[in-house]
């Protein structure tokens, strides 16, 4: 019946068939409204499919942590900690945190790019739970976080990192970083809706993130710092995250440290999800 089905690949544009067209338009009992979780999963699937189409987009989240780890351990390890092995033990949890947190800026860049495309209009005119496109994308981004975290940990083990916390400690540490990153990414999606171009989001995002990452306990023991700086480092949520992850990886996990990080992640999520959603619906 359909002429389109028999089309050879070298004539890609075929005329729509009248009969098939009428049949396709006639079919259509309206299905029930989709639930919020299913809508979110469908949007998460959209992100995954994009990664499948262009796997190269995972290159930077793969290579950056390796570069940082190797560079810091072998360049500064001897000077900062006396030996590269000791410094690896100290810095690996921090690089894990840094690698994943840097990835969160891309959530804002991706959303900003999305907003310039007409497909957002279609998503916003669908009868689905309002935040679903955003939450779905955030869930899809967890894959990137997982890739960045896994690469860091695997390279760390290859260089001789010893995890006193065992497998559970490592998995717990990765999970905690991903949770915090999920919350932090909403700051950058809000930024993504405020800024006019993807590169502006990128620049502003990293400008905000760099001081948070470097004025933390990732690279040095804060007790070696001047007291003003030390108190700033102690207030920095990134330091709290690194402390908790060090505890989990090293087998000295402290429930209070973990609880603090979970609380901070929850606050970020509760403040910035409604903010982003509101701006997205109004854009």
């Amino acid at each position: 019946m359909s002429t389109a089905a028999t089309t050879s690949p070298d004539t890609p544009s075929t005329t729509p068939s009248e009969v098939a067209l009428h049949a396709a338009l006639a079919s259509g009992e309206r299905p029930p409204r989709v639930s919020a979780p299913v809508a979110c999963l469908a949007f998460a699937g959209r992100s995954m499919r994009k990664i499948r189409h262009v796997p190269e987009q995972l290159l930077d989240v793969t290579i950056t942590p390796v570069l940082f780890l190797v560079m810091f351990v072998y360049l500064f390890g001897g000077a900062v900690a006396g030996s590269t092995d000791d410094y690896l033990q100290f810095i690996l949890p921090g690089i894990l945190v840094q690698a994943v947190l840097f990835t969160t800026v891309y959530s804002g860049v991706t959303l900003n790019t999305d907003m310039t495309k007409g497909v957002v209009d279609r998503f916003r005119s669908l009868p689905v739970w309002g935040p679903a496109p955003l939450v779905g994308a955030a869930v899809g981004d967890l894959v990137r976080y997982l890739v960045a975290a896994s690469v860091t940990v695997i390279v760390g083990f290859a260089l001789g990192f010893e995890a006193g916390g065992g497998v559970l400690g490592v998995l717990g540490g990765i999970a905690l970083v991903m949770l915090f990153a999920f919350g932090l990414a909403w700051v950058f999606t809000t930024l993504g809706l405020l800024m006019r171009s993807p590169s502006a989001v990128m620049n502003t995002g990293f400008m905000a993130l760099f001081p948070l990452v470097f004025l933390s306990n990732i690279f040095v023991d804060p007790s070696t710092l001047p007291s003003v700086l030390e108190s700033m480092v102690d207030l920095n949520p990134v330091s709290h995250l690194v402390t908790a992850v060090r505890g989990l990886l090293g087998g000295t996990a402290d429930a209070g440290d973990i609880g603090l990080v979970l609380g901070e992640a929850a606050v970020l999520t509760l403040v910035f999800v409604p903010l982003t959603t509101r701006m997205y619906r109004r854009a």
């Binding site: 359909s2 002429t3 389109a4 089905a5 089309t7 050879s8 690949p9 004539t11 890609p12 544009s13 075929t14 005329t15 729509p16 068939s17 098939a20 067209l21 049949a23 396709a24 338009l25 079919s27 309206r30 299905p31 029930p32 409204r33 989709v34 299913v38 809508a39 469908a42 949007f43 699937g45 959209r46 279609r122 998503f123 669908l126 009868p127 689905v128 679903a132």
Partner: peptide, 29 residues
Amino acid sequence: LLGRLLGYSRRQAAARADELITAFGLTAA
């Protein structure tokens, strides 16, 4: 994706997409 978002099951959404692709002469693409 749109089929899923409009409430079809995974299988229904795939079937509906097939149907529209054929009807609109987009099979090769």
